[in-house]
Simulated scan of single mutants.
Amino acid sequence: MRQRPLLGLMRLTRLTHLTRLTRPLRLLPLLLVGALGGCAQWGYYGQSLSGHLSLVRAAKPVDDWLAQPDLDPTLRQQLELSKHLRDFATTELHLPDNRSYRQYADLHRSSAVWNVVATPPLSLQLKTWCYPIMGCAGYRGYFKREDALALASQLKSEGLEPYVYGVPAYSSLGWSNWMGGDPLLNTFIHYPEGQLARMVFHELAHQVAYADDDTTFNESFATAVEQIGVARWLAQRPEALASDENSRQRQDQMQALLRNSRDRLRELFQSTVSDDEKRAGKAEVFAQLRQQYEVLKRDQWKGDDRFDRWFSTLNTPALAIQGSYTDLVPDFIRLFERQGRDWDRFYAEVKRLAKLPKDERRAQLAAGG
């Protein structure tokens, strides 16, 4: 997707807003486009295909970049690091050994794609869009920001509450490996070491297992792989571990605030009070969330304002999509432990769960597989 942007909360980086809320724009192979009907569908998948192809064409192998004598030293350092991360992902985490993240592209823009999410004003239920092969997902991605804003405007006119955010990376779920795979991008290559590792491990995990109707299952699985993988990577990199610790702590504190606010809103929206009372209660929840953030920033973070931009646009769908990256992570980590911390057994079990109906999948995951 996905989310990771500080990457936003999902991946706390030096950027000032949450963008990895996302990550996702899961693109389809070329032959599927011809099977779609309707002008709107043709237009959407046309921009998806052309946008992805332009990204792939801009990429070239990391070693080719490193062979350039005048390559920026900082970029050289990060590309060298990416090679080690990519090898670690395959050898230690048993993630796919393919061409993804062994190439690099400079898109000359700040985001790879822009995602649109939306909810009814008094609900945390994300609107879903359905696609061939990948099924339904709670977001819709565009390679041009103005296209995303146009959809958001349309959704607002339909009575929904939309949210648009930039995404630094997305996964093609392995479909583009024949074209060179998903490349490293300028939109995230300069992340600190721990955050770059999270990005690479998370996106590769999407190539392992995918449930075609369950955004939270998919994103929480990838986040669990990322968390376990990064802990193992940083355990052998004490300097990187020390610098990553502060960001991880702040990310955990932020997630706790957001989780509490989501729980309060869910309880409010499911209550029997009037809609007017729900709107008033919703405003209070968001006001208190912002106040708690300001206190946290002032008293514990020494004025660190990296989340300010995200908080300035915070709304219900922004809060809802955040939950998809974290809500099931504890269940996946328990499943990993139950499989003896064996990656192959863990992935096989996740693939099995992904094939089940959603309710049965969630029940078995909660029960430990």
Rank of each mutant, 00 (worst) to 15 (best):
Y104W: 08
E245C: 11
Y210C: 07
Q77V: 01
Y210S: 05
Y347R: 06
Q339H: 10
Y131F: 14
R341G: 09
N260L: 13
A287C: 05
P132K: 03
L7P: 12
R232Y: 04
T128N: 11
Y163M: 02
G368L: 01
H17F: 13
Y163V: 02
E337G: 04
N246W: 15
E360W: 06
W310K: 02
D212H: 12
Y293A: 00
D70V: 11
Q236G: 08
L296R: 01
L53F: 12
E360N: 02
S50P: 02
G141L: 01
L257T: 10
S220R: 02
N218I: 07
L204F: 05
A231E: 15
D64T: 11
R361P: 06
L71W: 01
L265W: 10
F188D: 07
M179C: 10
V200N: 00
R345Q: 13
N177M: 11
Y347T: 03
P317N: 04
Q78K: 15
A222V: 00
L95N: 00
E267R: 13
K297F: 01
G194N: 12
K302F: 10
A58L: 11
R102L: 08
M199K: 08
K156C: 03
S243I: 10
H17R: 12
A89W: 03
S50G: 04
S243R: 15
A58Y: 06
Y163G: 05
R341L: 00
W301M: 15
A148T: 02
Q103G: 08
P61C: 05
G159L: 00
G38A: 04
Q47S: 14
V285T: 14
A40N: 10
G141Y: 00
A35C: 05
P73N: 06
S100F: 00
Y165L: 14
S111R: 10
S274Y: 08
R279Q: 13
T187E: 06
I189S: 03
L55G: 05
E245S: 14
L149F: 09
Q236K: 09
D147Y: 09
L93G: 00
T13H: 08
L21T: 09
M254Y: 09
L258Y: 13
L18D: 13
F336H: 15
L9W: 15
L258A: 11
E161C: 07
A366L: 15
G340A: 03
S153E: 13
D304K: 02
R20D: 10
K144A: 11
R362M: 02
L124G: 06
A209I: 01
K156S: 15
